[in-house]
């Protein structure tokens, strides 16, 4: 038993104190420690350097390291806050915090907006929406004609772009999500509430005095 307890645990580069991360996110210290186990697994699946590379992210999502997907790319880019091509532990925890069932809905709405603002202009533009619909169709078995795609995009855009200026801003997006709450359903991962059961952290539990009850 004692042999598992070590204060000199080798942490990955970019490791951050679980107590600090727990302060900034909806996670408890134990949950952050459990996420560290998941992080170590994901970040060593191809290159064992303690950082999640895009191929490792794709491998975890699709069981295929080479499967490119517009939306997975966007998620990766948003998680990679420093924009250095890899996801560090702190970035991983803070970003996943948005997907926690207890995270504020406003954060989920903002994250989804940034996700769909492909070109980072501060707006979701019609062409971006069309590009995303086409990308979705490519990855599914749905075959829809160009005309119908245009109709779907037009209808959605006119519903969301209430100011009628040809782009959806964050305020319009917020109102649109309020009318269509299912749009951010995928921004909540109920699994995060059970993360300590899935990844019990026997080793790290000795490192932080966990004051949660």
């Amino acid at each position: 038993m004692g042999c598992f307890h070590s204060k000199n645990v080798n942490h990955t580069p970019g490791y951050e104190d679980p107590a600090l991360l727990a302060d900034e996110t909806p996670f408890t210290v134990s949950e952050v420690e459990a996420l560290y186990e998941l992080f170590k697994k994901l970040s060593s699946s191809i290159i064992d350097d303690g950082l999640i590379h895009k191929e490792e992210f794709q491998l975890a999502l699709f069981r295929n390291r080479n499967r490119r997907n517009l939306f997975a790319d966007r998620i990766f880019d948003l998680f990679d806050v420093k924009r250095n091509g890899v996801i560090e532990f702190g970035e991983f925890v803070r970003s996943l915090g948005v997907f926690h069932p207890n995270a504020p809905v406003e954060e989920k709405i903002k994250f989804a907006f940034r996700l769909y603002d492909l070109r980072r202009t501060g707006f979701i533009e019609r062409e971006e929406l069309k590009e995303m619909v086409i990308a979705l169709l490519h990855e599914s078995d749905l075959v829809i004609s160009e005309d119908v795609i245009e109709m779907i995009v037009d209808k959605t855009f006119s519903d969301a772009d209430t100011k009628g200026d040809g782009k959806i801003d964050d305020e319009e997006w917020k109102q649109f999500v309020a009318k269509n709450p299912s749009l951010i359903k995928n921004m909540t991962l109920p699994y995060l509430k059970d993360i300590t059961l899935a990844f019990p952290s026997f080793v790290l539990s000795s490192e932080v005095e966990n004051l949660e009850t």
Binding site: L61, F62, N180, K185, N186, Y191, I195
Partner: peptide, 26 residues
Amino acid sequence: TAPVTMNAFELISKSQGLNLSSLFEK
């Protein structure tokens, strides 16, 4: 059938790339 009346964002949100639950599968 073609989901003409479907919300485009609703369609997009079904992407497997947005389904992060697979990250937790063992």
